[in-house]
Design a protein around this nucleic acid. Structure first.
Lengths: 137, 137
DNA sequence: CTCACACTTACGTTGCGTTAACGTAT
DNA sequence: AATACGTTAACGCAACGTAAGTGTGA
């Protein structure tokens, strides 16, 4: 029944919007291992692995390191795993909460960075618009 | 009369808020050369060089590469140089306009990145807040 | 047989951080 | 003489990009 066609890296990368190199890199980093290989050695991925890559991609704007992503994914896996013990779940919750805080802080830094960028950008575009005020950055 | 005390790299770095390494790195990259050295080889900076470093620092939120910053600084110098020829000024204006466009685009990317970051951050903080909706990233 | 696609090294890039070993200035 | 500050290599790191040379599979 489970007519789940497995995908090769090219199709995966295109669907997710990552480079082949990135997908392989995340594998090296331990973020996701292909479901298997063909006889010839081609990586094979399932749909749920595609989703996992999408999840990874959605973390990127926050600027997480691969190590952090790995941690967060582990915690997430634990929370979603019905077989996980009470302790594991609790630890995962703590971890997830920490990441929520880190994420909030990253958003804050992005906001200030955006504000600074916009300020500079504004001045820069005034630099060549000729009005009497001597333009200065 | 020009009682301009020149500063050494430590004081410069502290005032500007950059590391010594960064200041030296920007020098390597050709963004600014010290006004001179002491007999013993210590770098000496003028106030206007401090301002230049502050300017460099203000560019950073935009994510410019050092090569881009170098270009932009060159154009800026030309625009501020009263001895510059007409052609030089025109070229500098073109360059500055291009950078204004690049900067605006960078701001746009930062905005979308912030939006994505906030979305993920929001979901992440719901992950451990226990309500009935099965939490999913 | 042909191609598009994939594989594994392995070195290049950017913007610094970080020793290490040593000289300078007060 | 001590101490804070500075100097030049030079290697390390993250997160991939980019060949290079070779194999796979429809």
């Amino acid at each position: 029944m489970n007519e789940t066609r497995r995908l090769r890296i090219g199709e995966v990368a295109e669907r997710v919007g990552l480079s082949l190199r990135s997908v392989r890199f995340y594998e090296e980093a331990g973020l996701l291992t292909p479901d298997g290989r063909t006889e010839g050695g081609f990586r094979l991925y399932t749909e749920s692995q595609v989703e996992r890559l999408l999840l990874i991609k959605r973390m990127k704007p926050l600027g997480f390191s691969v190590a952090q992503m790995s941690e967060l994914l582990t915690a997430y896996d634990t929370l979603r795993n019905p077989r996980a013990s009470r302790e594991e779940i609790d630890a995962a919750r703590v971890s997830a909460d920490e990441f929520a805080a880190i994420a909030a802080e990253a958003c804050g830094e992005l906001r200030t960075r955006l504000a600074l960028a916009e300020e500079f950008s504004g001045r820069l575009s005034e630099l060549t618009s000729e009005d009497r005020t001597s333009p200065q950055l």
